[in-house]
Design a protein around this nucleic acid. Structure first.
Lengths: 116, 116
DNA sequence: TGAATAGTGAACCATATGGTTCAGTGTATA
DNA sequence: TATACACTGAACCATATGGTTCACTATTCA
């Protein structure tokens, strides 16, 4: 089995678990943005948004650069390759453990038993 | 753009952000296990492990059934399709926003500037 | 029946998270 | 130079998280 850096996966899955942060990634996929722009779009204070951006930065999904008084945020170099790889390996575990049809039958039996 | 259930993604990414829970998924990929077995393997109290299993259950990754005094945990019907799909869509965003080589160059420039 | 086993539920604890306000600093602009 | 703007840092707050202990119930087994 491939080795995945645990603290990295911790940080990146945690970063993705918040809907605002997923929204920020979506926004930055369309265009770079300042903290102020992101804060406005997500109805949040500058300080609050800065924290979200910090989490995304820490996870490596976003990079920022301050020019003058404006900090511009953009998608980071690193994409979601590691996370995609982890998830893909588990999809294979699932598939190898049982094929989907078998499992549906098994689940139905379980429900019947429960509802008796 | 495809629509993803937000609370579901919240729950599943949060579930995956803990190394113990990822370990439990790995273990259940090999064989079903009781709470006691999982607690032993991960050096944790029964109560602590039960909470982790609850989180995985809530995210839909695990199902459990209690027979007699033993609660057996197994991989749930639902795999990681939704998460894989979300991540894949973002990998495409990344790819469309810039190709990898351009971005490397851009990043190098940025580093040079910073180190001047 | 009695003792060991498997799990549960409540309470508790320390720390993390997601947010705010407020008082700054530094930058741009009239 | 004065004012507005973009951001930062510290402090604070409520709630969530990851863990524990302890008392308990229910089941198994000798």
């Amino acid at each position: 089995m491939v080795h995945y850096s645990t603290s990295r996966l911790d940080a990146s899955f945690a970063a993705l678990s918040d809907i605002t942060r997923r929204g920020v990634l979506e926004q930055l996929g369309r265009s770079d943005a300042s903290i102020t722009e992101l804060a406005d779009r997500f109805h949040m204070t500058l300080t609050g948004m800065r924290k979200h951006v910090g989490v995304l930065e820490h996870a490596g999904f976003v990079t920022t650069e301050k020019v003058g008084r404006v900090r511009t945020c953009k998608l980071g170099l690193r994409g979601l390759e590691a996370e995609a790889a982890w998830i893909e390996s588990y999809r294979q575990v699932w598939a190898s453990r049982f094929d989907a049809l078998d499992r549906v039958v098994e689940d139905l039996k379980l429900r019947e038993k429960r509802d008796e």
